[in-house]
């Protein structure tokens, strides 16, 4: 493993999550949305799994072990925001608050149903890709077992 990767791989996740959060928060008024954000986080997680091996990565990143739960929760959140209108008789994907009314904002983040849907999308994409990463890296030999790799 090159020293650059050895340094970068364990540290890239936090910036990646920050970037993803930025993409979602700003996404509705600027470039980017939940899908890209999810893939970016999954990429950082993937880098960690490939460099550390499945076992060690699992130990350092407990939440990845429950990626399937995250993905399912994301799907449910997306479904919930998508179909909330149906409960009150409106068509699915009715935008709330309705067009023209003011939106509550926390800084740049605007609380609309579409943003909620985007958050669900993000969790689903990040979660499902992490599930795949964990399965695939299990097929790889564990770098920790490789004597030539450790110094």
């Amino acid at each position: 493993m090159s020293p650059v990767i050895g340094v970068v791989a364990p540290r890239i996740l936090a910036p990646a999550v920050m970037l993803a959060a930025g993409l979602i928060v700003k996404g509705y008024s600027d470039t980017g949305e939940g899908f890209s954000a999810g893939v970016i986080v999954a990429l950082a997680i993937g880098l960690r799994y490939i460099t550390l091996g499945r076992r060690r990565a699992d130990r350092t990143l407990a939440v990845a072990r429950h990626a399937n739960v995250v993905a399912a929760a994301g799907l449910l959140i997306a479904l919930g925001f998508g179909f909330q209108g149906v409960l009150s008789g409106a068509p699915p994907f009715t935008h709330l608050p309705p067009p023209g009314s003011p939106v509550i904002g926390i800084g740049t983040l605007e609380l609309t149903t579409a943003v909620g849907f985007d958050v669900g999308l993000f969790l689903l994409v990040a979660g499902s890709l992490t599930v795949l990463i964990r399965y695939l890296t299990e097929l790889l030999p564990d770098p920790a077992d490789d004597p030539g790799d450790e110094r």
Binding site: G27, Y28, S29, D30, T31, G32, E33, G34, F35, A71, A72, L75, A78, L79, G82, P92, F93, H95, P97, P99, V103, E110, T112, A114, V115, F117, D118, L121, L124, V125, S128, L129, V131, L132
Partner: peptide
């Protein structure tokens, strides 16, 4: 739709149902 980025608004709002179906397919594929 309280947005400025057309692509994101289309994905998450105007064509939200399409996106919903797509991500459901994604979940099933995974």
């Amino acid at each position: 739709a309280h947005g400025a980025d057309v692509v994101t608004v289309i994905l998450a709002d105007f064509r939200g149902l399409d996106t919903m179906v797509e991500i459901t397919v994604l979940a099933v594929a995974v």
